[in-house]
């Protein structure tokens, strides 16, 4: 099939960018979206043009590196799917496809479709961990965790940090990302000890990074490749409110 692409090209952090048109034919429906871009890049190389830069790594939906806006949607038209798991059978011959980077003030664009998501790392650094140094751990079965609790913690911990939640949020809020981590850790008995400090620090960091407010439109949970529930945002708010009231 043949597609008409409009791709965001930008030189670096400070330069502006614009949408550039490309025609790509010879696309097979079995290709993944990224393989389609590989194909285009291969042709650009032969013409001596700079390739379209995009982040990608595992190409099996788990590393969280890939992520772009495809036809105005985070990770493209499917829900619960990363860009690398999107295949060309979701498009029709002759379609026009708009490809842009994830946009948010906290995700500066580096070049073309590559963005800097280190703001997520900073949120985790602020408190998204359990303070257990190597050597301190007690015997693992001495901490009993109900089956359902472990499963619920897993649901939250499944976040791959791709940033689709921020990209699709009209407010560019990182509430789903931050709340998934808070929920994961507070659900577990090991993580409860530091929960008040953690939630305050992580939310302050989230603000400092320049993310917007969550207004509960719930677009994030629709586009999340791991289908993380926006109920976690409720839990984060609960933990925050609790910390506000009870913390000394």
């Amino acid at each position: 099939m043949k597609l008409y692409l409009k791709v965001w090209r930008q030189e670096n952090r400070t330069s502006g960018g614009s949408m550039i048109d490309y025609e790509v034919d010879g696309i097979s429906e079995h290709m993944s979206f990224l393989e389609m871009l590989d194909l285009l890049n291969e042709r650009l190389i032969l013409k001596g043009e700079r390739v379209i830069e995009f982040d990608h790594d595992c190409r099996e939906g788990i590393c969280g590196a890939c992520g772009m806006m495809i036809n105005g949607r985070a990770h493209g038209p499917l829900t619960g799917t990363t860009t690398c798991q999107l295949h060309m059978r979701s498009f029709k011959d002759g379609d026009t496809v708009y490809i842009e980077p994830f946009r948010a003030a906290a995700f500066p664009i580096l070049r073309d479709l590559k963005t800097d998501r280190s703001s997520f790392d900073h949120i985790i650094q602020a408190g998204g961990y359990i303070s257990a140094s190597t050597g301190q751990a007690p015997e693992s079965n001495s901490i009993l965790i109900a089956h359902d609790t472990a499963e619920a913690a897993f649901d939250a911990a499944a976040c791959i940090g791709c940033g689709a939640c921020v990209a699709t949020c009209k407010n560019s809020s990182a509430a789903l990302f931050t709340s998934a981590k808070i929920s994961h850790l507070v659900l577990l008995p090991q993580g409860k000890t530091e929960s008040a400090d953690r939630v305050i620090k992580m939310i302050s960091q989230m603000d400092a990074e320049g993310f917007g407010h969550c207004t509960n439109t719930e677009a994030c949970e629709v586009e999340c490749p791991q289908e993380i529930s926006s109920l976690h945002i409720g839990r984060m708010n609960y933990e925050y409110n609790k910390a506000l009231i009870l913390r000394k």
């Binding site: 359990i130 751990a137 897993f154 090991q190």
Partner: peptide, 12 residues
Amino acid sequence: DQAVAQGVPFAR
């Protein structure tokens, strides 16, 4: 032990 202490949600 270490992984559990860090909060790895192993199956229970």
